[in-house]
Design a protein around this nucleic acid. Structure first.
Lengths: 174, 174
DNA sequence: CTGTATGTTCAGTCTGTACTGAAAGGATCG
DNA sequence: CGATCCTTTCAGTACAGACTGAACATACAG
C-alpha cells in the first residue's frame, strides 16, 4: 500500500474533499479512505509516507478515527509497531459516525432549544412568535431523534423492507 | 428585531456554531436564524447592524440562502430596500438543504465511485480487493439515494406513518 | 542500563476561508 | 440629468483550524 494505484489515489483524494465539506478534517478522511482500501492493517509511519503528511498528524488523526470506533489498532507478530485497520462494514461505519454526530451536535441543539423555550420572557414583545418558531424547530429535532432511535433498533435488512413499504404507502395515497 | 432578546441571541449564536460544524458558513447560519425568528422581513442593513457584520457580508450570505431557496426577498410598500424573510416550514427547509447537499456532494461521490470501479486495473495487485471495497461503498451510496428518492416523494405525514410501521416490524421480528 | 524504535504532545507556522471596507454598479427620485 | 439610496463586487486583511517538526514519553531489545 506504500505505492497507490491511480484509482486508490482518486478515491482517497475525493474522500478527503468530501470530509472537509461535512466538517471532517481532510487528513482524517484521507487516512480513513486509505485504511478502508487496504487489505492489511497499516503502520502509522507507512500512512504518513503514503499520504505525505507528518507523522504527528497521523497520530492525532488516527486517534480521532479510533474515538469514532471505525478504526482500530492491531498487532502483527514480530512487529512492535501498531498497525491500523478500518472497519469494512459500510453501513455500520456510517451508523457509528451518525450516532456520534447526533450526540455531539443534535442532542446539544435539542438542549439549547429546550432551554430557549424555558426562558422565553412572555413580557418581551413578540414572545408569542418566538415561542412558536422555537417550538416548530424543537419539534423537528425531536422527530428526527425519534426516527433515528427507530432506525437504530432495526436490523439493516428491515430498512430495506421499510423502503418497499414506503413505496406501497405512497402508491395507495397517491 | 434590531435589538435581540436574550433567547434570540442564544438561538442565533448556537445556530451559527452548528452551521460551522456541518460546513456551513457561520454568518450564513446566523442570518438564517435571525430571519427564521423574525416575524417580519428584515432589510439587509438591519441584519448587518443586529449581527455586527459588514453589509457586504450580509449581501453574499443572503445570496447563498436564496440559492438554497430558504430565504427570499420581499418588498414593502413605500420602501425601496429589499426585505428578506425565511421560509418557516422547518421540514421543507431541511428537505431543500438536504436535496442540494445531495446534489452537490452525494451525487458527485457516486460518480467518482462509478468511475473508480470502471478504471480498476485487473492486472494491478490487489485489484480484486479494491473492487470489492469500492463496490460496497458504491452500494451504500446507491441505497441512500434510493431511500432519499422514496422519502422525497412521500408527504410529510407519511414519514410519521412509516415511523410507526417501523416499530411494528421491529416488534414482529424482535 | 543504555540505545533504539515507536508513539504523543505542543508551540509555532502555514493555509484556506471568512470578512471587511472601499469602490463601482443600478435603480429610483426630484 | 444629477442626487440619493441601495446593492454587489472585489482586493486586501484577519482569523481559525490544520499541519509540521522538535521535544518529550514510553516500551522494548540487547
Amino acid at each position: 500500500m506504500a505505492e497507490l494505484s491511480r484509482v486508490q489515489k482518486q478515491y482517497i483524494l475525493h474522500w478527503g474533499e468530501m470530509g472537509t465539506k461535512w466538517g471532517i478534517n481532510r487528513t482524517v478522511a484521507q487516512i480513513h479512505a486509505l485504511l478502508y482500501l487496504s487489505p492489511q492493517a497499516v503502520p502509522a509511519e507507512e500512512i504518513a509516507q503514503t499520504l505525505s503528511v507528518a507523522r504527528s498528524n497521523v497520530s492525532t488523526s488516527i486517534r480521532e478515527l479510533e474515538t469514532w470506533g471505525i478504526v482500530r489498532a492491531v498487532h502483527v507478530l514480530g512487529d512492535r509497531r501498531e498497525h491500523y485497520e478500518s472497519m469494512k462494514d459500510v453501513w455500520e461505519m456510517f451508523r457509528l459516525v451518525i450516532e456520534q454526530r447526533k450526540r455531539r451536535e443534535i442532542d446539544p441543539t435539542r438542549e439549547v432549544l429546550r432551554q430557549c423555550l424555558a426562558e422565553v420572557d412572555p413580557k418581551e414583545p413578540g414572545a408569542e412568535y418566538t415561542r412558536e418558531r422555537l417550538e416548530a424547530m424543537a419539534g423537528f429535532f425531536e422527530a428526527v431523534t425519534e426516527l433515528y432511535d427507530e432506525m437504530r433498533r432495526l436490523p439493516t435488512g428491515t430498512v430495506r423492507k421499510l423502503l418497499r413499504m414506503g413505496t406501497k404507502v405512497r402508491k395507495k395515497e397517491g
